[in-house]
Structure formats: structure tokens, C-alpha cells
Simulated assay, not measured.
Amino acid sequence: MAQQPQTQPAVRPKTHYIKGEMVLFRDVERYWLGLPGHTFVGRVERSWTNVHNGKLLYDLTELSGNRARAGIDPDYMRPLPAADAMHDIDTAPLSEPDTGAMTPAAVAWLRQHLAQDSSTLPVRR
């Protein structure tokens, strides 16, 4: 008898966001129409409830163009954790860093802090 493939239950995404959080969101109409430019990074500006259906919606600022996007459905939003954004810096080699393996932001951070006092690194915040 053939063994059934193992499936994992779907993870329900976080559905409540607070002002200032960074999110990835998808313009669902552009996505289903196969149009380019359907996924963006945004910053949550406010939340509100649609009076017609009671659904919680969000207004965002699209970071790539500083454009306001209103009424975004949280089903098409995902959080962008700070740990993911800072992973390259957190895992950067600190002894003789290979600048080719790090992003420019990580290199700039290391140069700034190592130039201040080359004997010690700054205190972790």
C-alpha cells in the first residue's frame, strides 16, 4: 500500500497589525490578473472597520513610492519581522569581515562602529 504524503496544517497569518509595523502586501486584483507590480512592502498607518461588512481593514504607506494604499485586507498582508531584516548584520563575520558576503547596510554599520573604537564592539541593544 502506498504511503500518503505528509501534509502540514496551514498557518493562519497574524490578522492584527499596529501602526508603524512593516508588512508585505499583495494587490490581489493585479495578482489574479497576472499583472506585474502586485506585491509591495508597506508601513501600517491605521486600521478601521468597514461599516458594511464589519471587516477590519488597514491603510498603508507603500514604501517604494511613499504612496498611500487604503482599505487593505489583512488576508493579503504578512508581517515582516525585524529579525529577518537584520539577519545579515546579526550573522556577519566580525573578524576580518568578507564584505562581498554582506549587504551594503551591514558593511556600513560595521565600518561606523569599528572605526569608533577598534578594540571593542558596541554594546548590544
Results as ranks from 00 to 15, higher is better:
A101R: 14
W48H: 15
W32F: 06
K19S: 11
T39I: 14
R69E: 06
L94V: 06
R111I: 07
L80I: 07
A105K: 13
P122R: 03
M77G: 02
V28F: 12
D59S: 13
R46V: 10
R125F: 12
V51T: 15
H38A: 02
V51Q: 15
P13W: 04
S95C: 10
P93C: 07
L94Y: 05
R26W: 02
E96F: 09
V23N: 06
T49R: 09
D117K: 01
T49A: 05
A101G: 13
R26V: 00
V107T: 05
S119R: 12
L110Q: 03
V107Q: 02
L110F: 05
H113Y: 09
R125Q: 15
E29V: 07
P104C: 07
G42C: 00
D98Q: 11
K55E: 09
R43A: 01
D98F: 03
A106T: 15
D73L: 01
G65M: 13
H52L: 13
Q3V: 11
T103S: 13
H113P: 06
G42M: 05
P5M: 06
V41F: 03
L33S: 11
M102A: 09
Q112N: 09
T99Y: 11
A106Q: 07
S119Y: 01
A101C: 11
G42R: 03
G37L: 04
I18K: 15
A83L: 03
Q8V: 02
V44T: 02
Y17A: 04
L80D: 00
P79C: 05
R69N: 03
A2R: 12
G37R: 01
A85E: 11
T49P: 06
T39E: 14
V28R: 07
W32C: 02
M86S: 08
T7R: 13
T49Y: 10
T7I: 06
D59K: 10
T7C: 08
R69Y: 02
R67N: 13
H113M: 14
V11W: 05
V28K: 06
V41P: 01
N53A: 04
L56V: 12
Q4K: 12
D117I: 09
E62H: 06
R12M: 10
K14C: 10
P9Q: 07
Y76S: 00
Q8G: 00
F25D: 04
N50G: 10
I18D: 08
F25H: 02
V23M: 02
R30S: 03
V28L: 14
T39K: 14
A2S: 05
A108G: 13
G20H: 13
M102K: 04
Q6C: 04
T103C: 11
G42I: 05
Q3W: 09
G37V: 04
A83T: 01
Q112I: 09
S64P: 03
M1D: 14
G54H: 13
R125A: 13
R78P: 04
L35I: 04
A92N: 06
G42H: 00
W32V: 02
A105L: 14
A101W: 06
P104E: 12
I18T: 14
P104Q: 11
Q4Y: 11
V51K: 15
N66Y: 11
A106I: 00
T7Q: 14
V107S: 05
R26C: 05
H87Y: 12
G34A: 05
P104Y: 07
E62G: 01
L80N: 00
M86C: 11
K19R: 14
E62F: 00
Q112D: 12
Q3C: 10
T120M: 15
V41Q: 03
H87A: 15
L63G: 10
T120A: 11
D59T: 10
L63N: 10
